[in-house]
Design a binder for these strands. Sequence first.
DNA 1: CGCGTTGCTGTATAAATAGACACCATGTCA
DNA 2: TGACATGGTGTCTATTTATACAGCAACGCG
Lengths: 203, 203
Amino acid sequence: MSASLTPRQQQILDWIAERVRRQGAPPTRQEISAAFGFRSPNAAESHLRALAKKGVIELDSGRARGIRLSEPAGVSGDYLPLVGRVAAGSPILAAENVEEELGMNGQSFSPPAHYLLRVRGDSMIDAGILDGDLLAVHRTPEARQGQIVVARLGEEVTVKRFHRRGRKVQLRAANPAYTAIEVDLDQQELVIEGLGVGVLRRW
Amino acid sequence: MSASLTPRQQQILDWIAERVRRQGAPPTRQEISAAFGFRSPNAAESHLRALAKKGVIELDSGRARGIRLSEPAGVSGDYLPLVGRVAAGSPILAAENVEEELGMNGQSFSPPAHYLLRVRGDSMIDAGILDGDLLAVHRTPEARQGQIVVARLGEEVTVKRFHRRGRKVQLRAANPAYTAIEVDLDQQELVIEGLGVGVLRRW
DNA sequence: CGCGTTGCTGTATAAATAGACACCATGTCA
DNA sequence: TGACATGGTGTCTATTTATACAGCAACGCG
């Protein structure tokens, strides 16, 4: 997608990101030039154009300090990845599935959350999980009766309540409009990706 | 700590913080004026001076967009106070009401959350807010039709949907088993403590 | 070889921006 | 009563800033 940056370009991008993080506002052309010892603001201008062309920044024309970082860098620690739609066949935490990093500590949940998964549909509405809600997930392959799990059936990832009887598993929705999914462990592969440990909703 | 802001000042500070969060750069005086309908950039200028005087922002003189938030976005850091039962008559954020500090950034919500309030009862169940859920609250005295608000009526703090017709306000539950609370602003005092901006549930 | 990209210098200018000065109305505090 | 904060309108200007134009040198690609 975005062409790789030259070392110089990377250096400049890093500096800009650092500036935004520390000063709260992007630099001007002349500030960039001063920082790198350019004698002409146009050196900065052309670097910015190159960076914009490669898609790592966006320039708002005609605005003072109109530089925006395409991907806000600065993932330092207490962040949980937000997983949106899971691409068929890919591991849940593959980079392509991560939409955003949310500033919150997984330890706020017990057991701790490893990531947040956006829930689609109203199949868990009676458990107070609405369409678009973020399910806090603890990665573990173990589930007990009645727990809310993130399960992978073939290429599909779903959120349901887990019920097991011997070699048969029922994945039950929390909504009378849905019928339970029956899985025979000898016939189909079922992977428990994790356990729901909480819900986060943003309006 | 920081001197208390007037509602108008809080509103302007919130708007600036939101801008910084979303656009990556602080606004200019004319942008503030445009957003609030001021006809003169000087209205924004004097508000900024007032905010700087109270220590919630810092101004870099002679720089375009030289506004820095003293405490990023007016939110103290990476922790949100969890407010449980609110003692009668005390301010919501009084230390006696804070049960715990949760490791999450208020910026995960938009507008940013200032604290979490434990919701009691099932009066908001149809909005997906269950007994014991934590409501993320953005402090502001302003509410629009239908928004979920934290309101104080006399000594009681409640979470309801806000509806206003002239001097009469209805606080509606999201549960058919409850009847709406009618408030005549000329008879009773109603304080909007904040706006619900999200929900956090821990199992 | 010519062509495009990178990485600069140097100059110029229109537009964006901060911020001064003057002024007004309202409320509060002592 | 006067002083002071709040919340504005209106105008003007010095500075800051983005960005165009004209060049130059080095490099890799086909």
